[in-house]
Simulated scan of single mutants.
Amino acid sequence: MQALTMNTAAIENAFERFEAAARKTAVAPLQNVQTGSVEAAAARTQLSASLTVTRTADVMMGCLLDMKA
């Protein structure tokens, strides 16, 4: 269960990073397009990894409950 709780913060952080990159690019598109794109890609990767951890923890919890039953 601890993985799900800790992962919630990581998912929220990824969304915040993506939003910050989008704002940065929107304010000055010509100056920030490269860094904004890299930051947005890093946030997407972080989100994808966090969601994979969440799915894995969910499957593991299901397996443990099945074994216990």
Rank of each mutant, 00 (worst) to 15 (best):
M1N: 11
Q2N: 14
A3P: 01
A3Y: 03
L4I: 14
L4D: 07
T5K: 10
T5F: 13
T5W: 09
T5M: 11
T5L: 15
T5E: 13
M6L: 14
M6P: 02
N7R: 03
N7F: 00
N7K: 02
T8G: 08
T8K: 12
A9N: 09
A10Q: 05
A10V: 09
I11F: 01
I11C: 01
E12L: 10
E12F: 07
E12M: 11
N13R: 09
N13W: 03
F15Q: 09
E16Q: 09
E16N: 10
R17I: 03
R17C: 04
R17L: 10
R17V: 02
R17G: 02
R17K: 12
E19K: 08
E19A: 12
A21M: 01
A21F: 01
R23F: 11
R23W: 07
R23E: 11
K24R: 11
K24D: 05
T25H: 04
T25Y: 04
T25D: 02
A26H: 06
A26C: 06
A26K: 07
A28G: 04
A28K: 11
A28S: 13
P29S: 05
P29N: 04
P29I: 03
P29L: 04
L30M: 09
L30S: 09
L30N: 08
L30E: 08
L30T: 12
Q31Y: 08
Q31R: 11
N32K: 02
N32I: 01
V33T: 12
V33R: 09
V33A: 13
Q34T: 13
Q34W: 12
Q34H: 11
G36V: 00
G36M: 00
S37E: 08
S37V: 06
V38A: 12
E39L: 07
E39C: 02
E39N: 08
E39W: 02
E39P: 00
E39S: 10
E39I: 01
A40V: 04
A41K: 05
A41W: 05
A41H: 05
A41S: 12
A42M: 10
A42G: 03
A43M: 02
A43H: 00
R44Q: 11
R44H: 07
R44F: 08
R44Y: 05
R44M: 14
R44E: 09
T45D: 11
Q46P: 00
Q46L: 12
L47T: 02
L47K: 00
S48P: 00
S48C: 06
S48Q: 10
A49W: 00
S50N: 05
S50M: 03
S50D: 04
L51D: 01
L51Q: 04
T52K: 08
T52H: 06
T52A: 13
T52Q: 09
T52I: 09
T52D: 09
V53N: 02
T54N: 08
T54Y: 03
R55V: 13
T56F: 06
T56K: 07
T56P: 00
A57S: 13
A57C: 06
A57W: 01
D58N: 13
D58W: 13
D58I: 14
V59W: 07
V59R: 10
M60P: 01
M61E: 15
M61Y: 14
C63L: 15
C63V: 14
C63F: 14
L64H: 10
L64I: 15
L64V: 13
L65T: 10
L65K: 12
L65Q: 15
D66E: 12
D66A: 15
K68G: 04
K68L: 15
A69S: 12
A69P: 02
